[in-house]
Design a protein around this nucleic acid. Structure first.
Length: 387
DNA sequence: AACACGGGGCC
DNA sequence: GGCCCAGTGTT
């Protein structure tokens, strides 16, 4: 039980486990762009780079992050650069990555760092937690991995690895509290001679183990390659399949989005900014009618006239299904020429060339719908987005 | 404590 | 088609 005094045998087990994870990680770490302190010519990690990488990594598989990170750092190479950026430009570089609130939080965090921390990423957990979008995991990650503090961290990987290691079957809040205690206990088991860098190695090693060896689906778990196999109680007891316990299936909400892609004589497309709350908040899209059921042709036509101030005929451009974690959205896409172009841009709406969509904060689904609508009139899609 | 929040990769 | 992911903030 973490938090209580360890017996001699438990303490010895923890020391062995901690050492095994550290040495395994040093040999098995995937070469990620921001892991600059590993390999033959190690360079200390850049705090700002790691903060951005951690924000992008939340609820996102790490291999998807690198391309986004590179573009982001090229455009906003420092806290100061990000702090003075316009939000629209920040969202544009996040476009396609999802969970867009992370981008707004990171932007706000840069401003807090600039104004309250003299432009330097804070080094300890309590201060890091004051940054928007930095929760217990991210604070622990930056404090330990960048600044070598004794700060535990628990993400989905660590949660699973530790619960399997000790065959701990709890769920929910209890499991979380247990894992944080356990992660801290393992940090304390590290040998004092190598403590500073080892905190980072152990934390990152536990995550790496979960991401590459101790995989969620029991059929995929590569226990034969696991450095902790000899210590793993779930493996010994045959509990790998039930830790963590499979989640109940949640019903996805189904809805229909009728998208009207209004195209003016210059080939520009009308886009509007979504509301402040809800999904894709403040992201741009072509005018979209959201319904529980498929709207009638008449409803779409009225909506199109309202948006384009134009009586031109609708062209059916196509459709697709977009899945998110909680919804199944049927997109039905129409195109219409705004011959007279009476609708002007204004607050929350503007006309853009399809090629300029990449400069906007726009969801994957909205981008796809616009490309479909533009394609219906034979315009080429923006470069690099062939589908 | 439960829910909202994206999107792609994997089986 | 279902499950998952280097979580956080809100209700």
């Amino acid at each position: 039980m973490p938090g209580e005094a360890l017996g001699v045998a438990e303490a010895a087990r923890d020391r062995e486990i901690a050492g095994l994870v550290v040495s395994w990680f040093e040999g098995a770490a995937r070469p990620l762009a921001w892991r600059t302190d590993l390999g033959t010519s190690p360079v200390p990690r850049d705090p700002y780079t790691c903060l951005v990488a951690e924000a992008m990594s939340q609820q996102t598989q790490i291999t998807r992050v690198e391309a986004y990170l590179e573009r982001f750092l090229e455009r906003f190479p420092s806290v100061a650069a990000l702090a003075r950026a316009d939000e629209v430009d920040v969202l544009a570089l996040w476009s396609g990555l999802g969970y867009y609130r992370r981008a707004r939080n990171l932007h706000a965090a840069a401003r807090v760092i600039a104004e309250q921390f003299d432009g330097r990423v804070p080094e300890d957990v309590a201060e890091l937690r004051r940054l928007p979008g930095v929760g217990s995991y991210t604070a622990g990650a930056v404090a330990s991995i960048v600044f070598h503090r004794r700060a535990p961290l628990v993400d989905a990987n660590v949660q699973r690895v530790l619960q399997r290691l000790d065959a701990h079957e709890a769920t929910g809040k209890e499991a979380s509290a247990w894992a944080w205690e356990r992660a801290g206990g393992l940090l304390d088991a590290l040998g004092s001679a190598e403590k500073l860098p080892a905190y980072a190695r152990l934390n990152e090693g536990l995550m790496e183990l979960g991401a590459t060896i101790c995989l969620p689906m029991p059929a995929q778990a590569r226990c034969g390659s696991c450095p902790l196999a000899g210590h793993c109680l779930a493996r010994a007891k045959g509990l790998v399949g039930v830790i963590p316990r499979p989640k109940g299936v949640s019903v996805k909400k189904r809805l229909v989005c009728a998208v009207v892609v209004v195209i003016d004589a210059g080939g520009r497309v009308l886009v509007e900014q979504r509301a402040e709350s809800g999904m894709w908040s403040k992201m741009w899209q072509a005018p979209t009618l959201e319904c529980a059921k498929r709207p009638t042709q008449q409803q779409v036509a009225e909506f199109a006239v309202m948006k384009s101030a134009d009586g031109a005929r609708l062209v059916r451009a196509g459709g697709f299904v977009h899945q998110t974690t909680h919804r199944t959205i049927r997109f039905v896409v129409f195109a219409v020429r705004a011959v007279a172009c009476r609708r002007k841009g204004g607050a929350g709406r503007k006309w853009v060339q399809p090629g300029a969509l990449q400069g906007l904060g726009i969801s994957t689904a909205a981008r796809r719908a616009i490309e479909m609508g533009v394609g219906a009139f034979g315009y080429p899609g923006p470069p690099g987005r062939a589908s």
